[in-house]
Amino acid sequence: MVVRVLFVCLGNICRSPMAEGMFRAKVEAAGLGDQIRIDSAATGNWNLGNPPHRGTQQILTKHGIDYSQMRARLIGQEDFADFDYVIGMDGSNMQDLEALKPADSPVVLKKLMDFVAVEETTDVPDPYYTGNFDETERLVSAGCEGLLNAIRERFSL
């Protein structure tokens, strides 16, 4: 069985590709690369085809994570059938995702910060607007760790 995880933010150039890359690194480090498939997408269409933002590139480079194949794409209804988890970054993303999600979809739809035991915030702020990529990195890392633990527990990995 392969568990499929999709990270989603507004433009798919800052938070969701950061989460995709950092989660993939954690999955690989845990030896689960063949059991968990990871991708990211946007709720908005203005960055389609673009690589991650240079701030996200710097964070991923710092962690030795390759982002060369990452390109912004738009989430579609088919993603709710193709993925087991659809993970939004903030409340606005969740509203968009809930509106898109087919009524019969069994997908787990949650915010990334839902996987952090001690929540200091419920949203991952968008560094495109805040400029604070270090804060986003810290929150994304904590959320990815919690998500991986939840998946490992649920699927006995």
Rank of each mutant, 00 (worst) to 15 (best):
L112V: 01
Y129W: 14
K101Q: 11
S68E: 08
L74D: 06
S68K: 04
D114R: 00
L60V: 02
A30S: 15
S40A: 12
A25D: 14
A72Q: 05
E78H: 14
L74Q: 15
G131R: 07
N93A: 04
M18P: 02
N12A: 11
L109Y: 03
V86S: 07
A117D: 02
F115H: 00
S156N: 15
G146Q: 06
P102E: 07
A19Y: 02
V107W: 08
L148H: 12
H53F: 09
M1S: 15
L100H: 04
N12H: 11
M89H: 05
Q77P: 10
Y85T: 00
D114E: 03
Q35D: 14
V5P: 03
E120S: 01
G143R: 06
R152V: 10
D82F: 08
E28Y: 14
A30T: 13
M113G: 00
M70P: 00
G21D: 09
V2Q: 12
M70H: 13
L74K: 15
D84V: 01
E135N: 10
I75R: 08
F80I: 06
E98T: 13
N93H: 12
E20K: 06
G21P: 07
R24F: 14
M89D: 04
V116Q: 01
D104T: 10
D90N: 12
Q77E: 15
D134I: 07
G55C: 04
L97R: 01
S105P: 10
F7D: 01
R15V: 06
T130Y: 08
G31F: 14
G143M: 12
T122N: 08
Y67W: 12
F133T: 00
T121M: 04
L139V: 08
P17Y: 13
G76Y: 11
K110G: 00
H53D: 15
G33L: 14
G44I: 06
N47A: 13
N93G: 07
E119C: 05
P52Q: 08
Q77G: 12
Q77C: 09
A41H: 04
G91L: 05
R37P: 02
A29S: 15
F80Y: 01
L6C: 04
R24H: 11
H53S: 06
R154Y: 04
E153W: 02
D104F: 08
P127N: 05
D79Y: 04
D79M: 03
E78Q: 14
N50Q: 13
L10E: 15
K101L: 03
L97A: 02
N50C: 07
V116A: 00
I36L: 14
R54H: 07
P52I: 01
V118D: 02
G55Q: 07
L6T: 03
L97S: 07
D34E: 15
G55N: 04
R138E: 15
R154F: 11
M113Y: 00
D82L: 11
D104R: 11
S68C: 06
R154A: 15
P106K: 02
L157R: 12
F23S: 05
G11I: 05
P106M: 01
V27A: 11
